[in-house]
Design a protein around this nucleic acid. Structure first.
Length: 321
DNA sequence: TCTGTCAATCGGGTGT
DNA sequence: ACACCCGATTGACAGA
């Protein structure tokens, strides 16, 4: 009663192969399309309703058996009402044969199409449709592959980027410490010099050229530099839970892609003094991706590498930069 | 019954 | 005009 199992199932193929002069599956695998191919599927026609297909198709269908034959045995039903036949799946052998040909060439020239149709006992239109759908499936799979590949690339690049950012922060801290030390040493040298030389005119000249230390730093030079470091750290991925920008773990607003316009904005807070700016320029080589740390998407905590987005959106969000 | 797969259709675009 | 392609969609089938 259940007509489903009667259409093109593998269990039917054994019977079909015995009844017809069909090649065995292994033979099918060996055969590619050639115009004079001897691997021909004899005698079958598509059961799908096409204009021009004779009404007596039901008597010669090795690949498809009609719904009516199997369901109720009423072979005249279709002849009376010309009801469009229901869709039938291609048999495993037909699909196998088509797949082999698809592997050879996924486009279909008219001659090849006709030969394939003849070999498989299908309408040329069916062969064309199969290739069309097959190309669509192939494309979908290819897109999935490409997506996975790009996703993997993104994850890898992100890891590299995080690594470099951390390295940069480390170097910056190191630089500030060294600068601090140098300035303190310089200042102490000047004091010593001033004590040794009590000349008023000399003292005046010292006032006229205030150095950065006397102007900005003492007596809290270390604090100043620490604050600067804090500020820059707050913008980087190495800020911790004490950072003002990382208060309660809820920093989704910082991930807003809309803020990407800030990427190339000058960083006003960093090295605001000219001297330090020059110093930083002379000492810090330009990075390959400057100002990335200024993006308003501070990196997520170490245990969250998805940037707050669903995995499937990550690459596209990343590309938007 | 739900859901995924697949043959087939539809509508629009392109090349000859 | 025709054939073909593609993307989207439909509807039948098949398995869970």
């Amino acid at each position: 009663m259940d007509g489903r199992k009667l259409y093109g199932g593998g269990s039917n193929m054994a019977v079909l192969l015995r009844k017809e002069t069909l090649p065995s599956p292994s033979e099918l695998l060996e055969s590619f399309w050639i115009p004079d191919s001897s691997t021909t599927f004899h005698g079958s026609k598509s059961v799908v309703n096409f204009e021009g297909v004779g009404g007596d198709d039901t008597k010669d269908r090795p690949f498809f058996q009609t719904l009516h034959e199997e369901e109720n045995g009423d072979e005249d039903f279709e002849g009376c009402f010309h009801r469009p036949e229901k869709k039938r799946r291609l048999t495993a052998s037909q699909v196998q044969f088509l797949e082999r040909n698809f592997d050879v060439e996924n486009k279909l020239e008219p001659e090849r199409k006709n030969q394939l149709a003849k070999d498989l006992g299908l309408q040329p239109r069916q062969v064309a449709i199969w290739f069309q759908n097959r190309r669509a499936r192939f494309k979908t799979k290819q897109l999935e592959k490409d997506y996975d590949s790009l996703k993997a690339s993104y994850v890898s690049l992100k890891a590299d980027y995080d690594c470099i950012l951390k390295e940069k922060e480390k170097l910056k801290t190191e630089l500030l410490l060294l600068t601090d030390k140098a300035l303190i040493g310089e200042k102490e040298g000047e004091k010593t010099e001033a004590l040794e030389n009590i000349s008023p005119s000399h003292a005046e000249s010292q006032k006229a050229i205030p150095n950065r230390v006397s102007e900005h730093v003492p007596p809290n030079a270390p604090i100043l530099f620490c604050k600067q470091e804090d500020a820059s750290s707050a913008k980087s991925d190495v800020f911790d839970s004490d950072s003002p920008l990382y208060t309660d773990g809820n920093h989704s607003s910082l991930l807003e892609p809309a803020d990407s316009s800030q990427i190339f904005e000058p960083d006003q807070s960093e090295f605001s003094q000219d001297e330090e700016d020059n110093l930083s320029k002379s000492l810090i080589p330009p990075l390959c991706f400057p100002k990335l740390e200024d993006c308003s998407y501070p990196d997520p905590p170490a245990n969250a590498c998805n940037l707050g987005l669903p995995a499937e959106e990550q690459p596209f969000w990343f590309w938007s930069y």
